[in-house]
Write a protein that binds this DNA or RNA. Sequence first.
DNA 1: CTGTTAGCGCGTTCAT
DNA 2: ATGAACGCGCTAACAG
Lengths: 333, 333
Amino acid sequence: MITIKDVAKLAGVASSTVSCVLNSKKYVSEHTRQKVLAAANELNYIKHGAASELKRKQTQTIGVIVHDMSVPYFSDLVSGIESSAISQGYDLIVCSSLGGERSTAARFIRERRLDGVIVIAENIEDELLLQAAETGFPIVVMDRELHSKHIVNVLMDDEQGGYMATRFLLDKGHRAIAYISGPLSSDCNLMRYQGYLRAMHEAGVEENENWRMGGQFLKTGGYNAAKLLMEGELPTAVFFANDEMAIGGLEAFKEHQVSIPEDLSIIGFDNIHLSEYLNPPLTTFRQPKTDAGSLAGHVLIQMLKGEAVESTYRINIQCVERDSVSCYSIIKS
Amino acid sequence: MITIKDVAKLAGVASSTVSCVLNSKKYVSEHTRQKVLAAANELNYIKHGAASELKRKQTQTIGVIVHDMSVPYFSDLVSGIESSAISQGYDLIVCSSLGGERSTAARFIRERRLDGVIVIAENIEDELLLQAAETGFPIVVMDRELHSKHIVNVLMDDEQGGYMATRFLLDKGHRAIAYISGPLSSDCNLMRYQGYLRAMHEAGVEENENWRMGGQFLKTGGYNAAKLLMEGELPTAVFFANDEMAIGGLEAFKEHQVSIPEDLSIIGFDNIHLSEYLNPPLTTFRQPKTDAGSLAGHVLIQMLKGEAVESTYRINIQCVERDSVSCYSIIKS
DNA sequence: CTGTTAGCGCGTTCAT
DNA sequence: ATGAACGCGCTAACAG
């Protein structure tokens, strides 16, 4: 293996000089600079990462922690983060927190193989993050709200999203609006529901408790809820806590000859890839993930540089209007 | 920061002893072992990754190189790799080759911050990989075929897949089968086409050159090809080079009142998520990605351990039968 | 102002 | 079970 010393020898200078050149430090005469560069090039010198890290105590690398790399959800998020990282000269790696305490993610954080991390992984313990942050390790959390000196939250504003979605239906004349809930353990779901309630309240509309139902964030959850819904009096619009559930619901309604959007309007949440291909194409609400990712990356790098940052950033959710909602007045006529 | 020496002091032993205990090396008496463990625990000792790597010259980490993390295609592949890696005590990280020579991936390979890599990234140069392999760095390549002592190929057998797909149609009585090609620059596409030709040839059926058309691996590519196809005499079955194209084709056929599968059978390739939700659900051919990933991980670890491996592994493609194909005899009757 | 020398950082390993 | 040497790049203090 070629070391800095080999380069120094070939260039006829001291190894420290080589280091200075390679890191563009201090004043080194152009002449020796060229000599060093030429020698490094000739020998095909590559610095040894570990040795450099050992001394510098930083890796120029930031990590994205995901709870399971096989979830495509992260794609956009990660590409946003990547753009920030690259533009600032940081390397970016993704690691999974599968395995909890002994996961790659946990190890990399503990062993300081990263300068900072962005977390999108429910299955990593608050405790672990708080502990790391305690020691000054910068963390951006995107899937929960956590407060500590070195932790910043970048969150989708699900409450605002839920509010917006509900307002969207209200504005179309709907009053009988059901919210089909996701799992109660999910913060996203809760916030969306809060937003729903706020909009309903603001419009002076009561929530019909008979329509209060839900399930997992899955197709079957939506399917079952829709079936249940059809056993009683139908609302005129249904707000599904996410698109997957809306897909299930759509299926159930179809089976019972309830036409969408003629007989019933439905909206989803998330704007998953599929939603655009449904019949009818689903009106839904989009989380601007790339933007969120790039913000998260940007904020982390600010922390790394010791710049001041807010403790929480909230990203606005956006409406993606398609064809699964109609105006209530039109239905009636 | 707590170092091994702090632990040694507290436990009243030498730092080397601590190292032995922590790495379960050599014979250390149970008594001191416990003392050391207790001390390490009390101080909350965590080894410094870089220092350890510096000495050991290995990182216990393998990397997956993807050309752009925002492509969901990799999800299953990665989760297969992950399962292999974890089971063998390796950490796994994903890094992107976006940026070519100066990408994170390229740097990590060069700086030996990984023990080995699995590559699924067309945009990384053969040269870079060959160079790294030259120095004994183990690489598994999944998106091309590359020959070098330390490179192993794990590939989807697209030729066999194309053959199988065509045979599937032939077995249903079809003789007039069009292959709608993807881009000619794509190896996958070429291999699928080769398989198609082999099956046709074997069955003694001539390829109708009027049906020889194609486009990008995209919806529009399939759409346009289908339109073109309908200008002449239709085949009884169409084999689209991938699902995206099949989706576009389906749309075009629908627009022209060609019913699938009554008037025309179609198949796709890839089994993307969407294909199951189409109308009719698309018969397609699945690349067992998780299996491929786990094989790739397994092979890489074998290389790391110095065990013997083949130079190329080919993964069989599997049929996913849905409702977009009918028997030719039934159509005629 | 340019280049050098010496020693640091931390875990691992080998000879004792 | 131990102490010292080692790995390699970086930096502070120093000399030319």
